[in-house]
Nucleic acid binder design. Structure first.
Length: 430
RNA sequence: GGAGAGGUGGCUGAGUGGUCGAAAGCGGCUCACUGCUAAUGAGUUGUUCCGGUAUUUAACCGGAACCGAGGGUUCGAAUCCCUCCCUCUCCGCCA
């Protein structure tokens, strides 16, 4: 959530800033006006309450019974007035909060300006695009031939966009978890496994229940709970209503959870295989840090993502995401895209976001400033470590050989127990 | 799921309708004293919001709200009533 005071005191600035994200300035002005109206009502209400409190305390110290009764009856009408005014004030407050919660985070001053995905900028490329002297297979084919992925059976059991992962693919996933944990624990990250169900109000506080995003979430009405789309969603609120000591920061987590996405609105897109699925496992990095350090922290998380991609030796590019393409909660965002040989293009496997104080204000995560002794909001950042399905696709496709086998990346060999995964004899390459 | 107990300030823990924002203790902070990583004494010590004054200062004054959450009763609620959530104990079930 944006700081209402920022809109109150710098309407122009917020309008200019959010127009970079495509927000209509009128929406911000509407919030400004609602805030003004709310504060007027609130002032009025509080004055009336003050009067009520004053007379009430007089009543308690009055011995004279008739005088007492007089004062009590005098308050009856005020009471009704307060009630109706309170209703008006509450309604306006709610309206204000709703309107405010629909505004995305302000983009960083240095964020890349752009109108959409096409304006995102490649800022770095790792490794040349690999050349294959044979017709490459896609991950679906490889998954079938090596008996690693089964989407057909999953479709019967759970529907489209589900999958079974088998054999070496499973070992690779657990291996990826091991190498990531090893590296990140050595960097001071705290391993964490969060809940995958989350209450609606907390989800909203994380800025993840805005209308269009909401549609992508699984919801369980009977228990009024959502399934998380990422470990991020429940790792953040681990520090709900929490005040950090300055010495605790930065506080970094490496979380593992299954992620659930309805993929509403993406029908017909990437329907084959496991690129876009309803359920997948993901390792996610999450940082809480001092405001002045969040830019540095953002780069740090990106550098770790790159480090792990390089450990796997997968060709990738780093993309700076432009203002109109970045996430609702983000001030600045990078994506890492891995080369997918079968599609002859880079596809997103990671994202890395600095949400500044936007989510922190929502969940009320603060720190106590040593110098001023005041509480300020921390900055919160999230970054993909490994989205298992997509990283597996990248590994399988980039390491395939002419004979249909797949070479296991060196760092994963001790976990997979072999250097190369051969096609199963009873499966023919189609 | 059944039966019972309970949720109060950083912590422990009083408080069952009227100066209770809340006793007491611990902790924290400030000062004094002690020549020593401490003892003692005195004082101080919650958060959020609104308004005003002041401003290179993150201060002061006034007000409102907060005793798990949300409603209700009342002139007035931490205290009474209702709903929900959570924690603990016992039983049942279960990985």
């Amino acid at each position: 959530m944006i700081d209402i005071k920022l809109i109150r005191n710098n309407l122009d600035y917020v309008q200019k800033s959010l127009s970079k994200k495509g927000v209509d300035p009128k929406k911000i002005e509407a919030v400004f006006n609602l805030d003004k109206k709310y504060r007027e009502l609130l002032n009025n209400l509080e004055n009336k309450k003050a009067e009520q409190n004053k007379v009430s305390s007089e009543i308690s110290s009055t011995e004279n019974e008739t005088l007492k009764k007089e004062k009590i009856s005098g308050l009856t009408s005020l009471k009704a007035e307060i009630k109706s005014l309170e209703e008006k004030t509450d309604a306006t407050k709610k309206e204000l909060q709703t309107a405010l919660s629909l505004l995305p985070n302000l983009p960083d001053e240095d964020a890349l300006l752009g109108e959409g995905e096409e304006d995102n900028k490649v800022i770095k490329t790792y490794k040349d695009i690999p050349k294959f002297d044979f017709d490459v297979s896609d991950h679906i084919q490889i998954g079938k031939n090596l008996d690693l992925i089964d989407t057909e059976q999953a479709a019967k059991v759970s529907g489209a966009r589900f999958f079974y992962l088998k054999n070496e693919a499973v070992l690779m996933e657990f291996g990826l978890i091991q190498i990531a944990l090893k590296l990140l624990i050595s960097e001071g990250f705290v391993p964490i496994i969060p809940p995958v169900l989350i209450k609606p109000d907390v989800y909203a506080k994380m800025g993840r229940l805005v209308s269009d995003e909401k549609e992508d979430k699984y919801y369980i009405p009977k228990d009024d709970l959502y399934l998380v789309g990422s470990a991020e969603h429940t790792i953040g609120p681990f520090h709900l209503e929490y005040t950090f000591k300055e010495s605790e920061l930065p506080k970094r987590y490496i979380g593992f959870s299954t992620s659930f996405r309805r993929e509403a609105g993406s029908h017909g897109k990437d329907t084959k295989g496991i690129l876009r699925v309803h359920q997948f496992d993901k390792l996610e990095m999450f940082s809480f840090c001092l405001p002045e350090n969040s830019k540095k922290e953002h780069q740090f998380l990106l550098s770790l993502q790159e480090k792990m991609m390089q450990m796997l030796d997968i060709p990738y590019q780093v993309v700076e995401v432009c203002t109109k393409d970045m996430g609702f909660t983000d001030a600045r965002q990078y994506d890492i895209e891995a080369w997918i040989p079968s599609q002859k293009k880079y596809r997103e496997t990671h994202s890395c976001s600095n949400t500044t104080d936007f989510q922190a204000r929502g969940i009320n995560a603060k720190f106590k400033d040593q110098k001023t002794k005041k509480k300020e909001y921390v900055h919160m950042l999230n970054a993909t470590c490994f989205a298992m399905t997509r990283i597996l696709i990248a590994i399988l496709e980039n390491n395939q050989k002419k004979d249909g086998s797949v070479v296991v990346p060196e760092v994963l060999r001790e976990y997979v127990g072999k250097e190369i995964i051969m096609p199963k004899k009873d499966v023919k390459k189609e």
